[in-house]
């Protein structure tokens, strides 16, 4: 299969060529339609990697091949408060506002937000705002969908609903997805493959061969969970393994 994302020895430094790299010789291939989760502690370079894949940061060391159509859902919704919801979704689409309105409304219907199409973004709840962000990404029909901890600021119940919504939308549209998260269970619920990033290096690349829909209680789910927690340097009780040693 032809890879949709291909990174070869990608490095990134913020303070000159001799400084400690934030990303250190990353090799990564993502197949079309593949759902990849990227785990890592804060400061591990997750967001930097995502920004590179989004094309927001330049590639200075190494090679990167990215698809044309990319879309990002950020941790904060980043909606323009002065445009109603549907115009936020339609923003940047080619064609006049009138022509793109239909697309925007269809995308909003998919995230079950058609009834809020005319609302001002500042009146949305956290979950609604993130769903708008999701609609705004989907309407672009992306080949690569980048999710930067999109559920991090949501309450637990909303988060569960959002996770299953993302799963459904992925199955319906089949974009390649890179989900950045620090939640091991979330990664295992959604992804085909889980990567672990630590100090700028990819230290784990684990396939998740579990059938969908997945259950947290399943034994093989738990085994994978422990393995990934170990890679993140946290033991079962949430203690810092490195400190304990």
């Amino acid at each position: 299969m032809n890879a949709i994302v291909e990174l070869r020895a990608l490095s990134r430094r913020f303070h000159g060529p001799a400084s400690q790299p934030v990303l250190d010789r990353i090799d990564l291939t993502i197949a079309p339609g593949e759902f990849v989760a990227l785990l890592g502690r804060s400061g591990s370079g997750k967001t930097t990697l995502l920004r590179t894949l989004a094309g927001l940061d330049p590639v200075t060391e190494g090679k990167a091949r990215l698809p044309q159509r990319r879309a990002v859902v950020f941790q904060e919704p980043r909606l323009l408060p002065w445009k109603p919801v549907w115009e936020n979704v339609a923003l940047g689409l080619p064609g006049s506002l009138g022509a793109t309105r239909g697309h925007a409304l269809r995308a909003l219907r998919e995230v079950e937000l058609a009834h809020r199409a005319q609302a001002w973004p500042l009146t949305l709840s956290g979950g609604e705002a993130q769903r708008t962000g999701l609609a705004r990404a989907l309407v672009r029909d992306p080949e690569l969908l980048l999710l930067d901890e999109p559920f991090a600021s949501l309450d637990a119940l909303t988060r569960l609903r959002m996770q299953s919504l993302v799963g459904e939308l992925w199955q319906a549209h089949q974009p390649a997805v890179l989900l950045v998260t620090h939640d091991v269970e979330e990664a295992l619920l959604l992804a085909d493959r889980v990567l672990v990033l630590a100090q700028g290096r990819l230290i784990e690349d684990v396939s998740v061969p579990l059938p969908r829909p997945r259950r947290r209680a399943a034994a093989d789910f738990d085994a994978l969970r422990l393995r990934l927690l170990g890679a993140l340097g946290v033991d079962e009780d949430g203690n810092d393994a490195a400190k304990a040693a």
Partner: peptide, 27 residues
């Protein structure tokens, strides 16, 4: 600046960023 970044990803060019993001934001 996060809104401007979002605008860039959404494919807005400089003139569109000014029209849709900067001017309404400064209003």
């Amino acid at each position: 600046p996060k809104l401007l970044e979002a605008g860039r990803i959404l494919g807005l060019n400089r003139a569109e960023q000014i029209r849709h993001i900067i001017l309404p934001g400064a209003l």
